[in-house]
Design a protein around this nucleic acid. Sequence first.
DNA 1: AATCTAGGCAACCGCCAATAT
DNA 2: TATATTGGCGGTTGCCTAGAT
Length: 284
Amino acid sequence: MGRQPCCDKLGVKKGPWTADEDKKLINFILTNGQCCWRAVPKLAGLRRCGKSCRLRWTNYLRPDLKRGLLSDAEEKLVIDLHARLGNRWSKIAARLPGRTDNEIKNHWNTHIKKKLLKMGIDPVTHEPLKKEANLIDQPIQESDQNKINGHQQVQVVPECTSVTAAATSSELDNSSYSASSTSSSENSSSITDESKLVLNTLGENDPLLSSLLEVDAPLVDSLWELPVSSEEQKKFDNMTSWDDSLNWLLDCQDFGIHDFGFDNCFNDVELEVFNTIDDMENKQ
DNA sequence: AATCTAGGCAACCGCCAATAT
DNA sequence: TATATTGGCGGTTGCCTAGAT
């Protein structure tokens, strides 16, 4: 009955990956592509669980991953998407090319969450903390809301009590805040008409958001297939040392999708999104 | 210089829907 | 149809590092 176990628990290594393990995994996937993760450790000569291999690849070794802190545009997008989707990190990550759910989750917990709290914004509901407290005692005064850490563009939407504004995250410290939400982010699957209106308005002013906020937009992850060009493969095969390989990978991660020859994996709309992001980053 | 503390991040854990047998 | 496993996800942990004392 059923399938074979993913891996026998005995003899499976845990903890940080070594450079040698990374090399084996990269070599295997570049040669064979992603197939059955259960078989990967055995075929690649790794004493790891298939699950661990998948995680290591998707979160760290994938050549199209970006490195470094999230840009202002990305941070803004994360906040907007979180307001709509809640803690559905994989959905959010799918709309940020080159970023992983783990990375976004970590960035949220370590940076964005604090920024929002500092501003008096509840990172869960995306509503002013002061307002929530007041809901218990008394209705909030609109003038009070606008005073909260100087939220210049915060406006209260009647009935749905959504908070919306437009700003880049670099302005967060200057107390502008960008988000749209239903009264509960966890109920994001049913977007209210008011929220749709807010999102449409955001999209009109921001082509990037317009593309990325499309609920039915194709997800980047679903297209991930690793069609590495023969030229790139040859380059990798000719590398004499692990350092060469690692440097090559890191170089690739500094480039964009196009530099790596992934253009064929994406349709016109997705490529347009990538180009927009590239343009925005170049302007910074 | 040694120790303590907090922040950041990679990796693991446990759950669940999808799927193979 | 029932059962077991896979793959994927979100939550959490624990290690490492930098800054403070």
